[in-house]
Design a protein around this nucleic acid. Structure first.
Lengths: 251, 251
DNA sequence: TCCCGGTTCCAACAAAAGTTAAGGACGCCA
DNA sequence: TGGCGTCCTTAACTTTTGTTGGAACCGGGA
């Protein structure tokens, strides 16, 4: 699989992307930043394509992505898998496990990852101590929820090429906040199989759609990296309105 | 449109379905029940097919359904509409507006509704006074989120007949909690157009699928009411695992 | 009562997406 | 450096779903 540019992550940068994200989407007081920076976090390395928490499990920790990409997914009895969301550094994809005790989906790595684990217990205590941090995290889970709503629209209503473009732009706008864009290109470390699972189409069809975007000079996807060829066409195709990301405290 | 059996709802039953729901999914202390029963609620009647809050608006209240059915949806520029969820009495479909200030989707009635409005301000004060009620509501928004995840799977991975059966069973299991089942039948007041919008298919195809369920003796849908004809086939087709509804405090 | 508008239902055809199968590219490792 | 496994790519064919257009049904209001 694709390799994320994983270097040793110094301990003080583990929380950096999280704080940057919270600052962008919610505003956050200095006291709250201190609380978050004081949070005890157990850091562990995960290889690519590895489950972190599984559907049906009872989680005792929440998982902060320090580096690498993760995805959440559900697999139905027929064996088909649906990817529900893609996650990037600074996010806590399983924050919901704090109150939803049994996992109703899988969380797994896409690339090799550095993950920080925070005990539920610790978070619960923090919430009691600081209602403002609790609100911050609550809002974070609500933004997560808003992203699911848009994902439903994507899979339910847009033609396949627009679906792909939309997922690409959503990822880009989130990577922008944590300063992970590289000119007109950015990482999207999914195989075509996984892209299919994200868009609700087969891998073969995903391939057709990727080819189409390339041939029409809209965007290129090569070895887990998206390069935008024509920004105007790209935006138009994706039908993207980023309001649902709530990337501003006023939204 | 279909008419919900809307009778005058006495003031003391407005909170009843909410309390029953919270009791089922989260457990709830007597003190919390008292807090909720003391909540000032402004009751209003809405006709069928009427917007309650619109995409882009800033809400100042949350809306508790006392009677009738509502739906949340998003409409994209091409004019296509996706229904994201169906809501029943006792639910607060726009609880998320407490922290997501600008609506990213529409909430509208399906049938004539009795709605109770609770000021954001009131809820925020309640949260400060009672962290346990805050957790209760937080968990409620997380269950909402879990339902979106399953909806993504439904639209993304299941064949159209299974999608329909799945939505039907989900609705049934939620109606069960508030004791709104009637033997082997229950209300599902959507037009075929709306069913299509919920499943990510066209109304014509929705019609084909409904016809198929009827012809195969699985379930019948007539005038906004589902009648299950063969429970075994119905469950098998729907591929339903209700864990994601978290209808127990231990889940 | 009859008409009207919104549903429901259906058929014929078109387009999108799934299935199957197979060859080619590429990185990894022995 | 050669072989292996994974991923990418494509073609041919099938199935599902969308589109268009029209008929039948049904309830409510004039």
């Amino acid at each position: 699989m694709y390799r994320s540019e994983l270097t040793r992550v110094p301990s003080d940068t583990i929380r950096a992307a999280l704080v940057r994200r919270l600052r962008t989407s919610s505003g956050i007081s200095d006291d709250d930043v201190k609380e978050i920076e004081a949070l005890p976090i157990a850091v562990r390395q995960y290889p690519a394509e590895t489950p972190v928490v599984r559907d049906g499990e009872r989680a005792t920790d929440c998982c902060l992505i320090a580096d690498g990409f993760c995805a959440r997914s559900k697999t139905i009895p027929s064996g088909k898998r649906q990817i529900l969301s893609i996650h990037i550094p600074g996010e806590i994809p399983d924050l919901m496990s704090l109150f939803l005790h049994v996992m109703d989906h899988d969380l797994s790595t896409l690339t090799p990852c550095t993950l920080g684990f925070i005990k539920h217990e610790t978070l619960r205590k923090l919430h009691q101590r600081s209602p403002s941090v609790a609100e911050l995290f609550w809002r974070d889970t609500l933004i997560d929820s808003a992203m699911f709503r848009e994902w439903i629209v994507n899979v339910g209503q847009r033609p396949a090429p627009a679906r792909l473009a939309h997922v690409m732009i959503e990822l880009r706008e989130r990577l922008r906040v944590i300063e992970r864009l590289d000119g007109n290109s950015f990482e999207m470390p999914l195989t075509q199989e996984q892209i299919g699972e994200a868009l609700g189409i087969t891998a073969v069809h995903a391939n057709r759609v990727i080819k189409q975007l390339r041939q029409e000079g809209i965007a290129e996807l090569h070895r887990g990296r998206v390069t935008v060829l024509d920004e105007r066409k790209f935006l138009e195709l994706a039908d993207f309105d980023g309001r649902y990301l709530h990337q501003s405290p006023t939204l």
